[in-house]
């Protein structure tokens, strides 16, 4: 199953995954973790896996995400849904475009 960006590359190593997550955060994109069992091109909307804030500050605002945290959530999403593809996307609210989308975990890799 070769689809989405980075489909033609070897599976991303943990540090590579973290580097991509870091790029999403540094570009000001809003990260989404999505998962689906039998994705197809017609299926645009995958189920969202929430990224909880790592910490709430004293003034009530959530602390911004960091790449390690996102990589951990992807890991837990993959553990929760072992037969699903897990996708990381980045949405740019300024342009309304999803400017990053790639498969972070595929079921063949195992847990």
């Amino acid at each position: 199953m070769r689809f989405e960006t980075f489909a033609f590359l070897p599976p991303l190593a943990p540090d590579q995954l973290e580097a991509q997550a870091l790029h999403i955060l540094k570009s000001g994109l809003i990260p989404h973790i999505e998962h689906a069992e039998n994705p197809s091109s017609a299926e645009m909307f995958w189920k969202l896996f929430p990224i909880p804030s790592s910490r709430i500050r004293a003034d009530g605002t959530p602390e911004p995400h960091n790449a390690t945290h996102i990589a951990n959530v992807i890991e837990s999403c993959a553990r929760r849904h072992p037969y699903s593809f897990v996708r990381l996307t980045g949405y740019n609210p300024k342009t309304g475009q999803t400017e990053a989308a790639f498969i972070a975990k595929s079921p063949q890799e195992g847990m």
């Binding site: 996307t89 309304g96 475009q97 999803t98 400017e99 990053a100 989308a101």
Partner: peptide
């Protein structure tokens, strides 16, 4: 944007 969303190819 619309073309990308329709084609479902991002990044």
């Amino acid at each position: 944007r619309g073309l990308r969303d329709t084609f479902n190819k991002h990044g």
